[in-house]
């Protein structure tokens, strides 16, 4: 006796093929839905905000009147913020990655630090705001300055930069290290002259992506008390300031419908900044992409 009857198999096969088709369609539809959400979102914002975009918008301070509201203070403030976050987070992030990859012995302490980094990456940004409020704003008495906000944001994106830098360092072939050590180079010479130059593209790409997260973060800034209506530009890192997402948040939450247009215009500016940063990251990735 035969257990498999070919006729039955063929008959069932049609059904199975149809099920396969239906589900393939469903899966495709779901994927398309996610992409559609992106398209609608971008379309909405551009169509709402494009009308308000002008040179005046870029060079005006915020105003009570929607027509006059500009984004100058927020744009310059965000640049100031990045001027603190970029060096702080990169020194801390790359330094930690070098320590973990090149110096630390594989053991309890290292895996503890590693686990800690993974967990830190999952802490909500608003909680980082509470940390910044207590430590930087109050305890270190930095107030709601560029420095306090910059340090808070640096800690927020630190896990991302560490992980990216670790991956970049790990991808440097071991043969290059060996060659350097065999020439009598010390560990630090090898790191500075061979490993970091070879890993620089990955480190920069990862860091820029992390920074672009920092530039769009709002919650920690609100919690540490960064103001919104500001009619001056910060002159130094101890001055207070406002930032793009703060300004957008303020405009979005105003009741007048006109301010929604202003908010959308602000979002376009923010997205252009993000697009620019991401393009730089992609450019670096392609330009320095070395094949060993």
């Amino acid at each position: 006796m035969r257990y498999i009857e070919q006729e039955k198999v063929v008959r069932r096969m049609n059904g199975r093929m149809i099920v396969n088709r239906i589900f393939q369609g469903l899966f495709m539809f779901a994927t398309a839905l996610a992409l559609l959400a992106l398209v609608i979102l971008l379309y909405r914002i551009v169509s709402q905000g494009a009308g308000h975009l002008s040179l005046d918008f870029l060079i005006n301070f915020a105003s009570r009147f929607p027509a006059e509201a500009g984004i100058k203070a927020a744009l310059v403030g965000s640049i100031w913020l990045m001027a603190v976050v970029a060096p702080t987070s990169m020194i801390l992030g790359v330094g930690s990655a070098v320590y973990l990859e090149e110096y630390a012995k594989k053991g309890r302490i290292t895996s503890f630090i590693q686990m800690n980094i993974a967990n830190l990456a999952g802490v909500p940004s608003v909680v980082f705001g509470l940390l910044g409020l207590t430590i930087f704003v109050r305890t270190l008495a930095l107030g709601n300055s560029v420095l306090a906000a910059g340090f808070t944001m640096s800690l927020l994106i630190l896990p991302v930069i560490i992980v990216a830098a670790q991956e970049a360092i790990r991808s440097v072939p071991g043969e290059l290290r060996d060659a350097s050590y065999a020439m009598g180079a010390t560990r630090w010479q090898t790191i500075v002259r061979i490993i970091l130059p070879a890993a620089i593209a990955g480190i920069l790409t990862g860091s820029i992506l992390a920074l672009s997260r920092a530039i769009g973060e709002t919650a920690p800034l609100i919690v540490i008390g960064i103001p919104v209506i500001i009619q001056f530009l910060p002159a130094g890192v101890m001055d207070t300031f406002t930032a793009l997402p703060m300004q957008i948040y303020d405009w979005s939450s105003r009741p007048q419908a006109e301010f929604q247009t202003v908010a959308a215009a602000g979002i376009i500016v923010l997205m252009v900044v993000l697009l620019f940063m991401n393009s730089v990251a992609v450019f670096i990735r392609n330009k320095f992409d070395k094949s060993y």
Partner: peptide, 30 residues
């Protein structure tokens, strides 16, 4: 060179401990 080789690991360890301190800071603050 010798001094640098001794100093750098200590410095980098301090830097790497910032992420741990951040966690401790968050928990203590809260």
């Amino acid at each position: 060179k010798k001094i640098i080789e001794k100093l750098i690991p200590v410095l980098l360890f301090l830097i790497a401990s910032v992420s741990v301190l951040t966690t401790i800071g968050i928990i203590l603050t809260l």
